[in-house]
Design a protein around this nucleic acid. Structure first.
Length: 857
RNA sequence: GCCCGGGUGGCGGAAUGGUAGACGCUGGGGACUUAAAAUCCCCUGCCUGCAAGGGCAUGCCGGUUCGAGUCCGGCCCUGGGCACCA
């Protein structure tokens, strides 16, 4: 079974055991055993052309240690891996080379798989998934149809980032500092027809359910901030020109209503035209034009000074009838609240700044409880200058004023979210096609009447050149809708994807009952169900496939459902999910949203997908900078595997520091862990590769100290793995290794137990030595050793002596030594007595077994 | 600006309020060897002292405590996230 090498020849040992595990499907997960299940998941990678870099195996090694440990503890472990393989780089490569992105993607996957296998991870390779596989994205499309059917998907003209260079639309997160994240090209705003997912419908639940998950607090807070719930009121201001009706604003501080000295509308607000007086028309028009040309970025980050223009119109304050001027300013955004605010410069920094610039009145209505009130003041305090509400704490005033407004029908309590609906389409080729066709109203009514059931309550439509198009889903049975092969991967250039040029795929006769299609250039097939249709040319963003992959792993080959109800019930959701903090908001929020929709559909039995989340830190280059090709500081795991072996690499990655910390790669330290493994090898085998003669079958060969240390080590390594403190687990094993080396003799049982502890970290050498020591079954199937708490206690302990809190010496004392005897020991100890001699003892603090602190005058 | 982390030897880091620096790296000395490598042993925070020892040390200042890297308050530096959200 084992190799025959005399020395620790990792180049021979590691491939040997990797092929052993592969041949025996050692890590295949089978549902339906009596064992408890444990599902441990890595964020699956995008298989880039650059191959694996050292950051990937960091998290993967940690989860592999957990997976191997849990197997040893008797769990039925699900530990899968796959490929998040749609994405822009493959498409850009295709544009450049003219080869299909699928072939490039497959090449990259082959390379990633080879690299990952060389690291010896205990993945269940029978469960590999690939988001670009039609058998996979069939179900991505299916989930989209469920969202569509529930009215959670709609089409809207959206101003989106358009990058002329990439000839495509970018998501907000793909735009960094006004440039495309990929390539750094300039971008501009353009209005395009987009698919949007109504994630805001789930805002409340996405926020509330954060309390149920075991995630890093910082990540929870980031999601909370992103969702951005705020409670306030919508208030109606009557306009002085009654003909124009009322102006609805949102405020979180209705208690400051008496301090409102002007109003602001976003430049895009629909009332702007009607409100503006003739005298102000020209100025307002010019301002709106200028604002429209600005990106959000320019309106926010870059704008240091607020700007605005008076509309000439006035509104009436509902609490006191005061006449309030209405301004137009781009510091108010149309996309949040009602696009209109009441400005209270005394108690809002932005309003204050604006009021100062345009010399608008500032009316203080909150007073600090103590001391002077410096404006703008946003702290706690009492309401003043506010009629009947004077003297109330402002939160109380907020409640009362809101209630009073509601009673008069001019306001209501309102909750607003920062969260926006999710722009879900890309004008690209390399993504999941939408299983949607566009048809006319008559055909839509016909199809719905015949088919029913799978369309939203109100039809999704868009109107172009006076014609309204209706979105009809393909029948679920017609999925997957695959990508056609195309002549060119270049975007059409007019805002549509390359698919828009594939007329034979695009313009079709569709059988709405079966989903069958023939090109529209051919005669219409016979039968009432054939209608003229145009396919959707947008494709889905990369997030789509990664939103649900963790479910597919439970039943990856299922052709009848995204996974069987049995598999979803048995495996459930990951018990541990490990990945980078860079996904703290988007991926994790999107996946939670989809999961909740699937929960509402009854597809999954839990309402949250990731119960326990851990972020591994980033490994920086040797220079302390982020690893990147351009800096030339990228460390490739292949070269370390070749020079030191993967067991050394795995151990070193974990030994570098706390898993969650950001830490620089330091090649010097790798020798240390490599030496540790060689020491373990030498303690097990002699120079001829035979069992080290110091290892005997006799259990009494172990000293009492070694036995105690072994049990301490079993406890610490187990505890540390459960808490992902893998660096200190390795330290403890090194301490044991050093003790092993010093021991003149050792029992075989002790060595075997130690190898079991090492096995999750350095599985190849552990298998090899385990086998060489004569164990017939692989160590990967062996149970975790147990520690005996009785072995952890000894009859003497080291007691630390302090005088006035300063360390003055220590001594071994019997367990349970009474205080007075401890004091006597201190007094008779030559190192301690000089510090207390001739002084009066004021106080003695005694923590048995730990410390004796004598406080003297 | 707001919200989170983090500041400990030459380096990576370790420390339930109880000897700060485990473990590893680096450096120095020694053993083994014809020699080297490998391996093993000792030393390796700073200052002072021949030594025994003493003093100072966990970013800075203060506080709580018999005792603080750890708890509290205020700063400084640094990394990350968000950003006119009414």
């Amino acid at each position: 079974m084992a190799t025959k090498c005399k020395d620790y020849n990792f180049l021979e040992i590691e491939p040997h055991w990797q092929s052993f595990w592969e041949k025996n499907h050692s890590f295949r997960s089978e549902p339906g055993t009596a064992k408890p299940k444990y599902y441990v998941l890595d964020m699956f990678p995008y298989p880039s052309g650059a191959g694996l870099h050292i950051g990937h195996p960091e998290g993967y090694t940690a989860t592999d240690i957990v997976a191997r440990y849990r197997r040893a503890r008797g769990f039925n472990v699900l530990h899968p891996i796959g490929w998040d393989a749609f994405g822009l780089p493959a498409e850009q490569h295709a544009v450049k080379t003219g080869t299909h992105p699928a072939s490039n993607t497959q090449n990259n996957i082959v390379n990633f798989r080879r690299q990952i296998k060389a690291l010896g991870f205990s993945y269940d390779w029978d469960r590999e998934v690939d988001t670009t596989d039609p058998k996979y994205f069939r179900w991505t499309q299916w989930i989209f149809l469920q969202l569509f059917k529930r009215g959670l998907a709609y089409v809207d003209e959206r101003p989106v980032w358009w990058c002329p260079e990439l000839r495509t639309v970018l998501a907000n997160e793909e735009v960094v500092d006004g440039k495309s994240e990929v390539g750094g090209f300039p971008v501009e705003r353009r209005n395009l027809r987009q698919w949007v997912l109504r994630i805001t419908a789930y805002a409340d639940r996405l926020l509330a359910d954060l309390k149920d998950v075991d995630w890093p607090d910082s990540t929870k807070r980031m999601q909370e901030a992103w969702i951005g719930r705020s409670e306030g009121a919508e208030v109606l201001f009557e306009l002085e020109n009654r003909a124009l009706g009322t102006l609805k604003i949102f405020t979180t501080r209705p208690d400051t209503l008496y301090g409102c000295s002007y109003m602001v509308l976003a430049p895009e607000h629909p009332l702007v035209d009607a409100l503006t007086t003739p005298a102000q028309k020209a100025e307002v028009e010019a301002y709106r034009k200028k604002a429209a040309g600005k990106s959000d970025l320019e309106r926010t980050d870059l704008a240091k000074d607020k700007s605005g223009v008076f509309s000439g119109a006035y509104a009436l304050n509902p609490v006191n009838g005061a006449r309030v001027p209405i301004w137009i300013a781009d510091y108010v955004l149309m996309g949040y609240g009602t696009g209109a605010i009441m400005a209270v410069p005394a108690h809002d920094e932005r309003d204050f700044e604006f009021a100062q610039r345009y010399a608008l009145p500032i009316v203080q209505v909150i007073e600090a409880r103590e001391g002077p009130t410096v404006l703008p003041y946003i702290g706690d305090g009492r309401v003043i200058h506010s009629g009947n509400y004077n003297g109330l704490d402002w939160p109380e005033a907020k409640k009362r004023i809101t209630a009073d407004l509601a009673g008069r029908g001019v306001g209501q309590p309102t909750v607003n979210f920062k969260l926006r609906d999710w722009l879900f389409s890309r004008q690209r080729y390399w993504g999941e096609p939408f299983p949607i066709v566009w048809i006319n109203e008559t055909d839509y009514r016909l199809a719905v009447a015949r088919r029913g059931g799978d369309v939203p309550p109100s039809p999704v439509t868009f109107t172009s050149e006076g014609v309204t198009h209706y979105a009809l889903p393909l029948p679920a049975g017609a999925l997957p809708l695959e990508l056609p092969s195309v002549q060119s991967y270049l975007p059409s250039g007019n805002g549509e994807s390359p698919l828009a040029n594939e007329t034979a795929w695009l313009e079709i006769w569709l059988n709405f009952e079966t989903g069958a299609a023939v090109p529209a250039s051919q005669p219409r097939p016979a039968g009432a169900a054939w209608i003229r249709a145009r396919r959707e040319t947008n494709t889905m963003p990369q997030w789509a496939g990664s939103c649900w992959y963790y479910l597919r792993f439970t039943d990856p080959a299922n052709a009848a459902a995204l996974a069987s109800p049995e598999a979803l019930r048995y495996w459930g959701v990951p018990d541990l999910y490990v990945g980078g903090a860079e996904h703290a908001v988007l991926h994790l929020l999107y996946a939670r949203f989809w999961h909740k929709v699937l929960f509402d559909l009854g597809v999954v039995p839990q309402s949250e997908p990731f119960t326990k989340l851990f972020h591994q830190g980033i490994i920086l280059g040797e220079d302390g900078e982020k690893m990147s090709k351009s800096r030339g500081n990228v460390v490739n795991p292949d070269s370390i595997i070749a020079s030191h072996g993967t067991d050394t690499l795995r151990l070193y990655l974990m030994f570098l520091g706390p898993l969650e910390a950001m830490k620089p790669w330091n090649p010097n330290g790798i020798e240390g862990v490599h030496r540790f493994l060689q020491k373990v090898w030498r303690e097990c085998l002699d120079r001829e590769g035979l069992v080290n003669p110091k290892i005997t079958a006799d259990p009494s060969a172990d000293s009492a100290e070694l036995i105690k240390l072994l049990h301490e080590t079993i406890k610490k390594v187990g505890d540390d793995i459960e808490e992902l403190r893998l660096n200190t687990a390795i330290s403890q094993m090194m301490i044991f290794g050093n003790a092993l080396q010093k021991a003149p003799s050792v029992s075989r049982a002790t060595v075997l137990a130690f190898l079991q502890l090492l096995a999750p970290f350095a599985p190849h050498i552990a298998e090899e030595l385990w086998s060489r020591l004569g164990e017939p079954q692989p160590i990967s199937l062996a149970p975790w050793p147990t520690f005996d708490p009785a072995k952890l206690v000894s009859d003497s302990v080291k007691l630390v002596f302090q005088v006035n809190g300063k360390f003055r010496g220590d001594q071994l004392v019997p367990v349970g030594l009474p205080e007075d005897e401890a004091v006597k020991l201190a007094q008779s100890n030559a190192k301690i007595s000089p510090h207390i001699a001739g002084k009066s003892i004021k106080r003695v603090i005694y923590v048995p077994g730990r410390i004796l602190n004598i406080v003297v005058e």
